[in-house]
Write a protein that binds this DNA or RNA. Structure first.
Length: 232
DNA sequence: AGTCCGATTCGCT
DNA sequence: GCGAATCGGACTA
């Protein structure tokens, strides 16, 4: 085992047991690990997240306290996966947070290990399998990362990623990753216009500035980080 | 039982 | 940049 691996540790319940917004930011830089049958390991650094709150949040599946069999994982203890199908053909994965009815949507990963397998999963699902996908484009969207990591509602909904016995999916800390050296952009969430401007515009999406795997950059929000260089 | 609609992605214009 | 693909589940009656 390499020296680097000695400091890597799985995240536990106590690490994840945070309110949705706080957890969204905490998870940036952490590593999502997926172990396939045959022991292939896929890893990706979380570089973009979104927070979904309960109750008031019109964009949330749990808006107004709605509670059904389908959204039950959002009410379960922090660290529970909530995988749902969207547009009849894609999946999105969330990690439930401390508050009942709230969760964090994983929107993008920077692929670190198992790139070959990710390429294979993505190619399977596409019509034109001609050209190879750029590594940074393998997981640059909530459904793309589910395809690349073979995450579906059938296989990984409602499981505890903080369970030390979980051999399929978990989170790891990366001691090499210097969180103090990155900039985190706070901006509006994607694809929720029908929730109305008030909730659609709230800054509940978070991503690592200048990371190539981020799904959609917000140039305006990014200006906050270089306003002193502005020449206008 | 029937209708409506996405927390998206891809392929083509 | 735009429209199609595609289906589970919430909601209506």
């Amino acid at each position: 085992m390499s020296v680097n691996n000695l400091n890597i540790r799985r995240l536990l319940k106590e690490d994840i047991d945070k309110p949705s917004k706080e957890l969204s930011i905490y998870l940036l830089g952490k590593i999502l690990v997926r172990k396939l049958e045959g022991d292939t390991i896929l890893k990706g650094r979380i570089v973009e997240t979104e927070s979904y709150l309960g109750g008031e949040d019109k964009a949330s599946n749990t808006y107004n306290g709605r509670r059904t069999a389908a959204n039950e994982p959002m009410y379960m203890p922090a660290g529970t996966t909530f995988v749902y199908m969207t547009y009849g053909m894609y999946h999105c994965i969330n990690i439930s947070s401390k508050e009942p009815g709230a969760a964090v949507l994983l929107r993008a990963l920077e692929p670190l290990s198992g790139i070959e397998a990710m390429q294979k999963f993505r190619a399977q699902k596409m019509k034109s399998k001609k050209n190879e996908i750029k590594t940074s484009k393998l997981c640059d969207g909530p459904s793309k990362l589910c395809i690349s990591m073979n995450i579906t509602k059938q296989n990984l909904n409602k499981v505890d990623v903080t369970d030390p016995e979980n051999r399929e999916i978990w989170l790891e800390d990366d001691p090499e990753f210097e969180k103090e050296n990155i900039k985190i952009v706070h901006t509006s969430r994607i694809g929720i216009a029908s929730a109305g401007v008030e909730w659609a515009s709230k800054p509940l999406r978070f991503y690592i500035l200048n990371n190539d795997s981020v799904s959609k950059r917000d140039k305006v929000a990014e200006e906050d980080f270089h306003s002193d260089v502005d020449t206008s």
